[in-house]
Design a protein around this nucleic acid. Sequence first.
RNA 1: CGAGAAGUAGCACAGCUUGGUAGUGCACCACGCUUGGGACGUGGGGGUCGCAGGUUCGAAUCCUGUCUUCUCGACCA
Length: 477
Amino acid sequence: MAEIQNKEIIKRDDNFADWYTSIVKKADLVDYTSTKGSMIIRPLGYAIWENIVNVLDSEFKKLGHENVQMPMFIPESLLNIEKEHVEGFAPEVAWVTHGGKEKLPERLCVRPTSETLFCEHYKKIIKSYRDLPILYNQWCTIVRWEKTTRPFLRSREILWQEGHTMHATSKEAMDETLRMLKVYEDFQKNYLALPVIVGEKTEKEKFAGADKTYTIEAMMYDGYALQNGTSHYFGDHFAKAFGIEFLDKDNKLKTPYQTSWGCTTRMIGAIIMTHGDDQGLVLPPKIAPTKVIIIPIGKISEENKAYLKAKELKEELLNAGITVKIDETDKTPGYKFAEAEVKGFPIRLEIGNRDLENNVVTLVRRDTREKITCKIDDITKEIPKLLDTIQDDMYNRALERRNSMLYEANSYEELSELSKKPGFVKINWCGNSECEDKIREEFGLKSRCIIEDEKADGKCPICNKDGKHKIYFGRQY
RNA sequence: CGAGAAGUAGCACAGCUUGGUAGUGCACCACGCUUGGGACGUGGGGGUCGCAGGUUCGAAUCCUGUCUUCUCGACCA
């Protein structure tokens, strides 16, 4: 094989961080700008995001959520209403201080999240139990002034979705919190092929102002965790702070209960870091903007039968509902193959005169790079099947790898030993923040989440008291 | 925000030590030839050397500051 010159990708196992950055650039997902942490999402990156938005948005709507658009600015006094919330966000808020040349009487924060805006609005529109529940969502960008930034994983301007709901009872709000957590979990498993772990955050790690925070934790190829979505139960904290009340059936004034839940473009980072390989991006078929890239062998000319057939097949696949592109550049096939792999198209369809003679095409799976000969007449039948297989195989490979990096430590010594390995370590935890802090200081691990469906069955490895929860610890992005 | 590294054409880099008219490969454009894993030939276009100051007759090169990117920490719904 000729030497790959300027599309070289750092080897994944040599330097995972560099590899990630090189994929993001080589696959043309983003470009940098002159402002730190503000990235341009290029067509391929944005098309992936659009697919994520389309699927999630329709899921939300099926459950009765309605989209709204809130302002981008929050007056300081409004942000300050809920104490824990403002303390949690103050360090990473960007402020607008001037309008034109004039200093503003009150500075405005660029929303880092919109709880306060929703609450201000809810106070106006909620009067009766008949107004509840309110199930609003918005797709927007938010700003958090992060000190260290990385494309998709941690940027200053973030594309996301934030759902904010109000309910008459605490139970209803808690059900909603868990219902949306499940939506995220299913989406990430079924569409993004990410074997995620769900559970509750500890007191220390929960959202500023929430009663309970539930999280979707994905494990990347290198064993690091990526928090890939959260769902919060607020109880009536915010509602009380904002004076939101409704008249219930029993003619009594009550405070409603609230949730919020969000996920971001960080999920694209998770796709890259879970599925990508030394050749480039590998996109799960269900979220890939273009499922099939057709590469005609030979000259791109009306005289080349392979090219003419390629155009026919493109139409045929489009009619069958399969998104497809045809590479009509005059590069050599090898160049096109490599380029198609960098960009992660799930299936590459090669067609040359040799194939035509036998009435077949060559299909190449991106995930395994396996070549498959397929009869031309069967492609609209075989390609959807192959896409499903790729999707399933990608999930199963990721699951297997993740499971191979899940450990359990039953003593301080075991924890000390396992903390050196990439992956998550499960322990029995006494529930005390001090032990959580110690694990962080001594081993560099942060709590990921409390495992919901597993009971503690031993001692906390730090203080040796009875465990209250099973909990995962790990390093994070 | 701390420590380290880097910024020269779209990309990867050389040139800097020892100051003297901006280079290479790939990519791009035209034509030709080719096409089953990153071809080839000929011709061509593209850079105020990240930005701002300073030293100097003269700065990509030396000095100061600053911005951005990367790595490792700290911080981080």
